[in-house]
């Protein structure tokens, strides 16, 4: 597998034979997520931020809000961009340098989940139509890599957006009464979020399909699929990855499981959000 470290044959066979007996190395069931913890507002200098912990995987998201120009073809919508940095701090397999295909894939899937779910209404980010809009940068830093970065990144991004603050503004009109310039005020208001996308990632190893793979499972997977759902139980993003394949029935089963799991996570989103949590503690057992 191209995306993870080496794994010994013995360990590979161990994981596979456990799976064939319906078990996983960490004792979870096939359809069970690891413990999720979200620590909001970790970075005070960002307008919104959150650390998402998915088992031992840790992702830190920061949202920076700036005033910019809209794209010429969409004068009446703001801009939301997502980047993912796989910094070498997180794994011996990550190297520094500009984002490679893998980081770009995660960033684009996260971006897709947020955009397609209409999590943030782009029209609400317009300041002066055609001239000035809010630009939201969602920057995701993977700090510790133990598998399933797709779900961890989407969770972190959504959590950071949930506590993002937009500066209040005053629009300055020119002599003819047309809006001309913008002045930032000291006060802020919360960013309006209309929808919350949540994803569920599956790994297919042999004939077994498991939810939320850890790194060891990821390193021997044949195929991967991520499904993101809105609160209306609609799929807002899909990404199949790696060289293996799924049958139609398998995909259908994944959709059913993902629908259940994302509902569960959504229902306990507030419960797993812990403003006083220690992002660095090792509380892995769920």
């Amino acid at each position: 597998m191209t995306n993870a470290g080496l794994i010994s044959l013995v360990e590979r066979e161990h994981i596979q034979s456990l799976l064939d007996h319906g078990k996983r190395t960490d004792g979870r069931s096939f359809e069970e997520f690891r413990k999720i913890t979200i620590i909001p507002s970790y970075i005070q200098k960002a307008e919104g931020s959150a650390m998402a912990k998915l088992g031992k995987s840790k992702v830190l998201a920061g949202v920076k809000v700036q005033i910019g120009n809209p794209f010429p073809d969409t004068p009446n919508s703001g801009v939301v961009t997502t980047t993912v940095e796989l910094v070498p701090i997180a794994s011996p397999d990550f190297e520094s340098g500009p984002p490679r295909a893998r980081a770009i894939e995660i960033a684009r899937v996260t971006d897709r989940a947020i955009r397609e779910s209409k999590a943030v209404n782009p029209e609400s980010l317009v300041i002066i139509p055609g001239k000035k809009v809010w630009v939201l940068f969602i920057d995701l830093y993977v700090l510790d890599y133990d598998g399933n970065l797709f779900d961890a990144c989407i969770l972190a991004a959504v959590a950071a957006l949930r506590n993002a603050q937009i500066p209040d503004i005053k629009i300055i009109n020119d002599a003819e009464g047309n809006p001309e310039d913008v002045e930032l005020l000291e006060t802020t208001h919360p960013l309006l979020m209309d929808h919350i996308p949540i994803s569920c990632t599956f790994a297919k190893i042999g004939k077994n399909i498991i939810v939320d793979p850890i790194l060891k499972e990821e390193s021997i997977l044949d195929a991967r699929i991520t499904l993101a759902f809105t609160e209306e139980n609609k799929i807002c993003a899909t990404q199949k990855g790696e060289s293996g394949s799924f049958s139609l029935d398998e995909i259908k089963k994944c959709i059913d499981i993902a629908s259940e799991r994302t509902k569960e996570i959504r229902s306990k989103l507030d419960a797993i959000t812990d403003p006083k949590g220690n992002p660095w503690s090792d509380d892995l057992k769920s």
Binding site: I43, K45, A46, V63, K64, Q66, T83, F137, D139
Partner: peptide, 8 residues
């Protein structure tokens, strides 16, 4: 980090 400082 991009968000470590006031201006991204």
């Amino acid at each position: 980090a991009t968000f470590s400082v006031p201006d991204r």
